[in-house]
Computed example of a mutant assay.
Amino acid sequence: MSTEPPPPSLTERRKAATQLDLAHAAAELFATLGPDATTAEEIAQRAGVALRTFYRYFRSKQDAVGPLLTVGADRWRGLLADTEPGTPLGLALRGAAEQALAVPDPAAAEALLRTRGLLRAGVDDPALRAVWYRVNQESEERLVPVIARLTDGAHEALEVRLVAAAATDAIRIAMETWAGTEAGTEGPGSPADLAVRCLERLLEGLVRN
């Protein structure tokens, strides 16, 4: 019997699209006006929806950027989930990080730069920073069964959780470090470069391949 989840319904796809539209609108306004000067009403107007629609999906203006920050984590986790079981874990993690943070086109570069803008704004906005930490915590929790499947019982539950936590922190630290620099989206000092370096150092001793 297939264990694949059913495809999202039309209603679910529309909901996700609206949330992403609001997230893009919030990110654009935060970049130009700053979080303090941006209101939920302005975000809703920019996205072309009613204010009540905004509050149907998000509790605060900072929450609205959650879907954008989640995209990268979902992509990385998806790449890991598609990795063949038995692949050396260190190799799988590094390969997925490189792919997830690659910039094959201008849209990918723009997405990374948008994330950098949000992380920079979060330095002076505790609520925005809390959204970033929440996204990472949720990603870590969802990564645990992916790591467990990849290792196919080779690691005990404690080790699996440690790997999930370390790997998530590696990506988070890489992104935060990059956000504090003027490094490009590719090459030395880029998100992919920093993520691989962080993974290699954080996971040393946890995985041996």
Rank of each mutant, 00 (worst) to 15 (best):
G78N: 06
P7R: 02
R77G: 10
A27R: 02
P88N: 11
V163T: 05
G66H: 04
G184F: 04
A40I: 04
P145K: 06
M175T: 13
A97S: 08
W178K: 10
R197M: 13
P85Q: 09
A44P: 05
A121L: 12
L158S: 14
T151F: 00
R172A: 15
D193L: 00
F54T: 00
C198P: 03
M1W: 10
L194C: 02
M175N: 12
E98S: 15
A179W: 05
G184E: 06
L29T: 00
L79E: 03
P85R: 03
E140N: 14
V196M: 00
G34A: 09
D193I: 04
A102T: 09
G72Q: 06
A179I: 08
A31H: 05
V146E: 11
V207L: 09
E186W: 03
W76G: 12
N136A: 15
R129I: 02
T83A: 11
T32N: 10
L128F: 10
V144E: 12
A127I: 03
R197I: 12
E110C: 11
T3V: 14
A64T: 01
G66E: 05
I173M: 12
M175A: 08
A130L: 03
T3N: 13
Q99A: 14
D105M: 12
T18P: 03
K61Y: 00
R46A: 03
E186T: 12
E98G: 13
A157F: 07
H24E: 06
A23M: 00
T32S: 12
C198V: 10
A130E: 04
T18Y: 01
A26K: 06
L29D: 03
V103T: 15
L80W: 07
E200D: 14
I171E: 13
L69Y: 02
P126W: 04
G189P: 03
Q99D: 15
P106L: 03
L68T: 09
V71N: 13
T18N: 05
G180F: 05
R13E: 04
L113A: 09
G86N: 12
K61E: 00
V207M: 13
S190T: 10
A154E: 05
L89N: 02
P35A: 06
P8W: 00
Q19Y: 09
L10G: 01
A111H: 14
R52K: 15
M1D: 08
